[in-house]
């Protein structure tokens, strides 16, 4: 029996997918703007922030309507909850892209550093995590989602290394203090994007397998005692 619910859920999933494309674009543009000192790319991220915010509000309204009118249960409930959370995570990732774009604009005004800390590598991994986490949700692939959770340690290690290198640069070359601070800011924002991408992967596992894998636990939903 085909349900009206399917059409509605498909519409909101498509809207979330369009939002995800916009967010991926913002993250990519913000990283490019920092690494290539491209202020036009940074400005495009700032200009597009409102688009992501409008997506968030629209999807929030869809989710409220689902709960009010459809009272979803079981896999439908898990799907609507996952959409709600991923919507919020994407909006926050968009905010971090904006932070990186703002760092880019400041960094572009300064003399370039001869050698950036390991931001290239971290950007690559984080952008990949975001793409794969979203892919896992839209293709219902919880194995792909689980693979993203394993990247957490590497991101933490890179973040620590970038911060230490940047501090070292600031100590040894005081003329590069501002540049080093921007590197630390970008690294922190990347670390947050990675964390939020992990949350998206966790939502897919919740949706597909009814398991909560937050904070390095892995429990059946709902956990007991209720």
């Amino acid at each position: 029996m085909e349900r009206h619910f399917e059409k509605e859920i498909q519409q909101v999933t498509e809207r979330l997918s369009a939002m995800a494309e916009q967010v991926k674009e913002s993250v990519t543009a913000s990283l490019h703007s920092f690494l290539a000192r491209d202020t036009a790319a940074a400005q495009s991220v700032l200009d597009n922030e409102h688009v992501i915010n409008e997506f968030e509000i629209g999807i929030d309204n869809d989710v409220v309507r689902f709960f009010a009118l459809r009272q979803p249960v079981a896999v439908d409930l898990r799907l609507v909850l996952a959409i709600q959370k991923i919507n919020n995570e994407l909006e926050r990732i968009g905010d971090h892209a904006v932070n990186i774009a703002e760092s880019s604009k400041r960094y572009a005004m300064l003399d370039p550093m001869r050698e950036l800390p390991d931001l290239f590598r971290m950007s690559e991994i984080v952008a990949g995590m975001l793409v794969k986490s979203l892919e896992s949700f839209f293709t219902k692939n919880s194995e792909l989602a689980r693979a993203q959770l394993l990247q957490d340690d590497e991101i933490d290690r890179l973040n620590r290394a970038i911060i230490l290198t940047s501090i070292d640069i600031a100590k040894t070359t005081p003329a590069l203090i501002e540049q080093a601070i921007e590197c630390i800011r970008v690294s922190k924002n990347l670390e947050r994007i990675a964390d939020l991408s992990t949350n998206i992967a966790e939502e897919e596992i919740f949706h597909d397998q009814a398991r909560m894998v937050k904070h390095r636990t892995d429990t059946i939903v709902p956990p007991f005692p209720m």
């Binding site: 029996m1 349900r3 619910f5 249960v73 079981a74 439908d76 939903v221 709902p222």
Partner: peptide, 19 residues
């Protein structure tokens, strides 16, 4: 709470979700 969030069998899920 289990039956309405994560039933084990597809038949149950199909029934309670109206499929």
């Amino acid at each position: 709470p289990v039956m309405f969030t994560s039933p084990k069998l597809k038949r149950t899920e199909d029934y309670i979700t109206g499929r």
